[in-house]
Amino acid sequence: MLSLQHISKFYQVGGNKNFVINDISLEVEEGEFISIMGPSGSGKSTLLNIIGMLDEPSTGFHYFVDQPVHQLKEKQRAALYKQYIGFVFQAYHLIDELTVYENIETPLIYQDVKGSERKAMVADMLDRFNIVGKKDLFPAQLSGGQQQLVGIARALIAKPKVLLADEPTGNLNSKQGEEIMELFRKLNKEDGVTIIQVTHSEKNAEYGSRIINLLDGRVESSKKL
């Protein structure tokens, strides 16, 4: 599904290269649930952003569903990304001016899905996440857990194959966090969504099928559960 080969990301500081990611290679199969762990500054988020094509590596090869991402043009990359990837953020990043319904609908708009179809898909999603009653509220009117639910619903609305989550529970209390993790597990098991999450929490990491530990931009250890 996804293959990173000798990926590095560095910044030139003076004459020195400052590595954020240092020669990481990684294979991800469809249906995996991977947790990326590591201390602050170990390159977790950068790695996730590279996988999500929000960021570009300085060197290395990146294949996604057998396409050489490192060779693709911006437009092709965007198309690929739109079709396969959903993103969940620590800070939810909902659009404040849009209601829950509209937030969830937005990705469909950018994928030129027809209005009637959109309606059905959003309704379905609201139903599935049990937030039908909140569809007309604005993000500011929701609790953090609810906002993250909306964030996940929005990430899933376009039926992505891969869900990338950057500390999805970082801003939530433990109970809310557990709920989100349960949801992830269910998505992974029942719907076969490939999930890659970055987390600080040992406990949340264990929801995954594989844990990768990063340190100073390198893979320190990787274990299957």
Binding site: L54, K75, A78, Y81, K82, F87, H93, L94, I95, D96, E97, T106, P107, Y110, Q111, R154, A158
Partner: peptide
């Protein structure tokens, strides 16, 4: 800025 970022992550093209 945030809204723009989110929209881009949601798949918005620059043109859109």
């Amino acid at each position: 800025a945030k809204e723009i970022g989110v929209r881009k992550v949601m798949g918005a093209q620059r043109g859109q």
